[in-house]
């Protein structure tokens, strides 16, 4: 099978999955609530309600409503979010998405840059001091709930240090909004925008603001990657081809980083892909704790207000991200393992 066919097949599969997700969320939304409630309030006269219902097509039979929903969706009309002063959902998503993605990417960078080397070191120095330390560190990561860990982090690195007049990390927000009042976003990515504008102080400020929420969000993924990397590395190091590599007279470093790493990366990459989707949903808690103006916090509020259009929109976006992350994983697979490309 050629790479092009492989990608094409995977993309078709991905579209099917996204379609399934949006159908299920629509059905759930259709069951649980009357969508018209978002368009009326206590002052709306009762006799006006059927007209409003008709205006949005809510009086049609369900297949027609489903068709209307789909046709609107594909025309870029994802409905309006009643809980955000009737702004179009797509617009809000575009507005809030960069903040969440920026946080998720930083979390991912933490997780990958620390997780993979920690896993390798832990595996190659099995049962030594550093391995014990790494195992405790990663066990803590998978065991601690994010809402508790993020609070503790904030308590120590922000509150505790601040009350003792020590240098401390900022407690929330993307940047110091009171100092940089006139900052204008272009793409919505703070680090990118500040670099484009040549504003180094705000770039550094943004970085400092990302450290704590980024680490809090990434710790779980970091722990998962470390454990996965360790176990698959241990598995691979027992393989016959490692003995063969050693028998060739290759240095231990080359044996580990060339022959073993590539094989050990295959299961780890799966975990990374799945975890990236998880980071977006994990951001719901982290963003709430760190007052992060991203999608997660907005989604929590939409749920509290039973804002169906907003919830549908958020779910769809998460589904698309999940599917895309998996697609990328599949492609990386093909690069790492020649057996998959043709299999």
């Amino acid at each position: 099978m050629k790479l092009r066919d492989f990608i094409l097949r995977r993309v078709l599969l991905a579209i099917t999955v996204v379609f399934g997700v949006l159908t299920i969320t629509w059905i759930l939304a259709f069951i649980v609530g009357d969508p018209v409630t978002m368009y009326i309030n206590e002052n709306t006269p009762a006799e006006a309600i059927p007209a409003i219902r008709a205006a949005h097509g809510f009086d049609e039979p369900w297949p027609v409503q489903y068709f209307l929903y789909l046709s609107n969706l594909f025309q870029g009309n994802w409905g309006v979010s009643g809980s955000s002063s009737n702004m179009p959902v797509l617009e809000i998503l575009a507005l809030k998405f960069p903040a969440t993605i920026e946080l998720a990417i930083v979390a991912m960078i933490f997780a990958i840059i620390l997780g993979i080397p920690l896993g390798i070191i832990s595996a190659t120095r099995k049962d030594q001091k550093i391995d014990h330390f790494t195992r405790i560190f990663s066990l803590a990561g998978v065991s601690m709930p994010i809402f508790w860990f993020a609070f503790m982090l904030k308590y120590v690195l922000y509150y505790y240090l601040a009350v003792n007049n020590l240098p401390h990390l900022p407690g929330g927000e993307r940047y110091d909004t009171s100092t940089y009042l006139d900052f204008e976003f272009i793409t919505g990515f703070l680090l990118l925008d500040s670099l484009i504008q040549g504003n180094i102080p705000i770039f550094l400020d943004g970085l400092v603001h990302l450290i704590m929420p980024g680490f809090a969000l990434g710790y779980l993924t970091l722990a998962i990657i470390t454990r996965m990397m360790r176990s698959s590395m241990l598995e691979v190091l027992k393989e016959d081809y490692i003995t063969l590599a050693r028998s060739k007279g290759l240095r231990e470093k080359v044996v580990i980083y060339r022959h073993a790493l590539r094989n050990a990366m295959i299961p780890t990459v799966t975990v990374i892909g799945l975890a990236f989707g998880g980071l977006i949903t994990g951001a719901v808690l982290t963003e709430t704790i760190f007052n992060w103006p991203g999608l997660g916090r907005w989604a929590v509020r939409s749920i509290l207000f039973a804002d169906l259009a907003a919830i549908n929109g958020f779910t769809l976006l998460v589904a698309i991200i999940f599917v895309t992350a998996n697609l990328i994983v599949d492609l990386i697979y093909g690069v790492l393992d020649p057996r998959i490309r043709f299999g």
Binding site: L244, R262, P338
Partner: peptide, 21 residues
């Protein structure tokens, strides 16, 4: 310098000894 250059070895199982990637 000894391994592979002065003394080389061919192992038993051709299915598992070459590195698959």
């Amino acid at each position: 310098d000894l391994r592979g250059e002065k003394i080389a070895i061919v192992f038993q199982d051709p299915a598992t000894y070459p590195n698959p990637v």
